[in-house]
Simulated assay, not measured.
Amino acid sequence: MKKTRNTVAKTKILNTISDSKIALSHSEIHELLDDFCDRVTIYRVLDRLVDEGLIHKAVTIEGVVKYAACHTCSTDEHHHNHIHFSCEQCHTVICMENVEPVFNMPKQYKVHSVNFTLSGICPQCS
């Protein structure tokens, strides 16, 4: 495994994502960090955290990329075969880790990753 260095920016961004109950977009992370680092640094750190298996991406129905903490992932393998729920009113994205989608693929297809996003109204907005 490739050794990566920990920087203050990486630690702050990872803590921000890990402390959040919802997935966060780049803009939301930038706002929560209160201009601690620039937007480009945040993008670089997010890419690095994904590569290291510490966070994963979820894409909303509108195409916005959100980031959430990983719990059982590594640099070799991500386990995100769970549902992401995107609220149409408050625009939060929540990992539904105890809900796994079921699908049947033809045998000639080899699936490497799954990204399921459901859109609707969350309990707080109902």
Rank of each mutant, 00 (worst) to 15 (best):
K2Y: 06
T4S: 09
R5L: 13
V8C: 05
A9Y: 14
A9K: 13
K10Y: 09
K12W: 11
K12V: 12
L14W: 02
N15Q: 14
N15P: 06
T16V: 09
T16P: 07
S18N: 10
S18I: 01
S18P: 01
D19N: 11
S20L: 08
K21S: 15
A23V: 02
S25K: 09
S25M: 10
S27I: 07
E28F: 03
I29D: 01
I29Q: 02
H30Q: 14
L33R: 09
D34M: 11
F36W: 11
F36K: 11
C37I: 13
R39H: 12
V40E: 04
T41W: 03
I42C: 04
I42V: 10
I42H: 04
I42P: 03
Y43N: 14
R44L: 12
V45W: 03
V45G: 02
L46N: 05
R48C: 07
L49W: 04
L49K: 03
D51F: 03
K57R: 13
K57G: 02
K57Y: 02
A58L: 00
A58T: 01
A58M: 02
T60H: 05
T60Y: 05
T60L: 05
I61C: 12
I61M: 13
E62K: 15
V65Y: 01
K66S: 12
C70R: 00
C70G: 00
H71T: 08
T72D: 06
S74A: 01
S74Y: 00
T75S: 13
T75C: 10
E77D: 08
H78T: 02
H78W: 01
H80V: 00
N81Q: 09
H82Q: 06
I83G: 00
I83Y: 04
F85R: 05
E88L: 14
E88C: 11
Q89L: 15
C90W: 10
H91I: 12
H91T: 13
H91W: 13
T92F: 12
V93D: 04
I94H: 13
I94S: 12
I94F: 10
C95L: 04
C95S: 13
M96N: 09
E97F: 03
N98W: 05
E100K: 15
P101M: 08
F103G: 10
F103C: 11
F103K: 09
N104Q: 08
P106D: 12
K107S: 15
Q108F: 13
Q108W: 10
Y109G: 06
V111T: 13
V111M: 14
V111Y: 09
V111I: 15
H112W: 08
S113I: 00
V114R: 02
N115H: 14
N115C: 09
N115T: 06
T117I: 06
T117A: 04
L118W: 12
L118P: 05
S119Q: 15
G120K: 09
G120L: 07
G120M: 11
C122K: 08
C122H: 09
C125H: 11
